[in-house]
Nucleic acid binder design. Structure first.
Lengths: 232, 232
DNA sequence: CGGTTCTTTGAAGGTGATCAATAGAGGTGG
DNA sequence: CCACCTCTATTGATCACCTTCAAAGAACCG
């Protein structure tokens, strides 16, 4: 294997985990590892020769830009996530590293062939795509309604669950992969409002800020209540 | 064939269009047609025995509800669209008919079997799922930023393109499948603001309202300019 | 025609955006 | 090691926009 699949941290969770060792070995020959530093661009909107990739370590954001250059974050990608618009003639969005990251990249033609050769891979990608769809809809739910406080609470609660290993219980401490500006962007607010509301959440004893990026959940139930979410 | 595939209006565009006639015939034996009247529920959030469906005629909305009962529209489904969370243990969202609709429904187990038996179907659903993902992200882009006018303009422009047969040029006249309240919901605004802004768009000569649901685009370029979108 | 629902229009108030300045963190080079 | 610079975050004051509350008008259906 040209890629270090044997020691890959996402070998049991990425899309390729459904392949047998031989199949995975064959696919890995077509792939290339790549490392990105924080802020580096993986794919650019408009690229015609788009590739796909599985994120191994780090974090990415998928974002659009309006014609005035304002950025809108559409999705975050965590390890074992798959990125790539395999059926579009060109990439619609930029993909940027939020932190230093490692990936497996594949040329589009190779991935197309792999999907035809390995039906299980197509099913795995279908499953992943539907999960991405669900995440996108969750983000719609967060940003469409409610006050600034509710949106921020919902976003933080969502992140705390993403950071947790158990799917239901939120992590009590986590590091935001985002700057304040990116947080504001996702919540549809301004930096200043986010800063103020975080301060209020801290004063009310709901969270505690640790350094610039760290968040400790002191009262997760209250955070969830503020978010107005319908989850149990 | 138990379903009228031969005369189905979406036989060349739905996911099942990738199947051969015999394959489609076999699948259709497992499916059932269903008609819904405006407002009827197809799937309810929390349903454990979820099914899937292809929309043949009409229009659907996918929506979530927060604990106070407020609805949030997450997606619209047009004919040939596929609905169903095939990998989730239960449905996350309600699916409701916006107008009288016809569908082909399939039990989950039958669709799972079909995906395994017909790899081309899995690929078709993957493609469709990625398109749905792109639509969801477009909606995020619409609702996250900009003024009320920009959001409404973007939404209307999006609908006009969906109503058009040619993928790029907007339809000059179309019927909204949504009430004012649903429009407001999708744009993240109130009914009153939508009503006011529609009035302003009409006074400025950008659109014309025809009856309660009809919209005529008088100045599509201006509408697009107001939307702040990055499209060419 | 009366009832219900949806839409339009009006006036007041609040929430978050904007503008502006300060403070802190991280990095580089002297 | 510290000075310096840049980038990010916090805090404050003002204002505009949208929401909220309220009522009247229009469409639909019995």
């Amino acid at each position: 294997m040209s890629l270090a699949c044997a020691s890959c941290p996402v070998r049991d969770s990425a899309a390729c985990s459904v392949l047998s060792d031989e199949e995975r070995g064959a696919l890995s020959k077509a792939g290339r590892t790549r490392t990105l530093k924080r802020g580096e661009l993986l794919f650019a909107a408009g690229d015609e020769q788009t590739a796909c990739a599985t994120l191994v370590t780090g974090a990415l954001k998928v974002c659009a830009h309006d014609r005035e250059g304002h950025e809108q974050i559409l999705s975050l990608v965590h390890p074992s996530g798959f990125i790539g618009e395999m059926f579009a003639p060109f990439a619609h969005h930029d993909v940027v590293a939020l932190t230093d990251s490692q990936l497996c990249t594949f040329a589009r033609v190779d991935m197309e062939r792999a999907i035809e050769d390995y039906p299980a891979l197509a099913r795995a990608l279908l499953r992943r795509s539907q999960e991405d769809l669900h995440s996108a809809r969750t983000l719609i739910e967060l940003t469409a309604h409610g006050t600034a406080e509710a949106r921020l609470a919902a976003l933080l609660y969502d992140f705390s669950r993403a950071a947790s290993k158990s799917p239901c219980h939120p992590a009590s401490h986590f590091e935001l992969p985002l700057t304040r500006g990116e947080l504001a962007n996702m919540a549809g607010l301004t930096i200043e409002t986010v800063s103020r509301k975080l301060g209020e959440l801290e004063k009310s004893g709901t969270i505690r800020r640790i350094g610039k990026r760290g968040i400790e959940l002191i009262d997760p139930a209250h955070l969830q209540a503020l978010s107005g979410s319908a989850e149990a």
